[in-house]
Design a protein around this nucleic acid. Sequence first.
DNA 1: CCTATATTTAACCGAAACGTTAATTAACGT
DNA 2: ACGTTAATTAACGTTTCGGTTAAATATAGG
Lengths: 128, 128
Amino acid sequence: MTLDNDPLSDTFAALADPTRRAILARLADGPATVGELAEPFPISAPAVSRHLKVLEHAKLIRRVKEAQWRRCKLEPERLHAAAAWIEQYRRFWEAQFDSLTEFIDALKNERDVAEERDPHDDDGNRST
Amino acid sequence: MTLDNDPLSDTFAALADPTRRAILARLADGPATVGELAEPFPISAPAVSRHLKVLEHAKLIRRVKEAQWRRCKLEPERLHAAAAWIEQYRRFWEAQFDSLTEFIDALKNERDVAEERDPHDDDGNRST
DNA sequence: CCTATATTTAACCGAAACGTTAATTAACGT
DNA sequence: ACGTTAATTAACGTTTCGGTTAAATATAGG
């Protein structure tokens, strides 16, 4: 639902795409232009542009015009809201598990994949 | 449906639907049968069944057969993973904001809506 | 003004999401 | 065995999503 649903749905929908998550991860290292963001991905510029529009609509990023570039910048407020929503269930997993390290590892792996070239390969661990 | 993508995509995609979030919220109060879960929603039983299948595929719930019922139960591990992923960005929002209460309020609102009758209500909490 | 660069919009396509109703499977109670 | 209840699967339609290429827009700079 691209229309103005509830913010939480927009946030989670935006996060449901690995390319968009990779874009956010890259943006966590600092602002970047659309071209810089598009460079690692094997998809066309319009496709990236649309991903950015989704992220912007979800208010996960903000784009500021700068000459002929649009510099993108992380906007963490909605991530905060999403985390707060999930945190409701903290008592559940705390009651059952306590293994945090594997999740940290998993997200680090995804981060590496994003930093590389191919964002839609989940177990594509590789070395350089 | 989401064929075997990465788990994180499945998790966020599952959370992107307000009906499914409401189902999870209800399940946070304890296990329930499909019929019990379907009752508050104005959609058909097959639609609910499919939502449950999405949640089960994403491993956010588990269904155990019990006579002619299928009791659904929250499975928090993937929520944990999703929270862990988002937590990467904690430093960003901590650097910029500190208003936590409004998010708590927002999720309470969504919870109320779910508990009521109509799960697809948008809570326009903030301006713009 | 003209051109190169950066990015978006338009038009289109196939696949997936989400809803429906009708039919089906499974288990219970009598 | 039969009928009832619980839930799913089948078949179908509409909308959204994610990708493409081609065209449009905007800005910098000779």
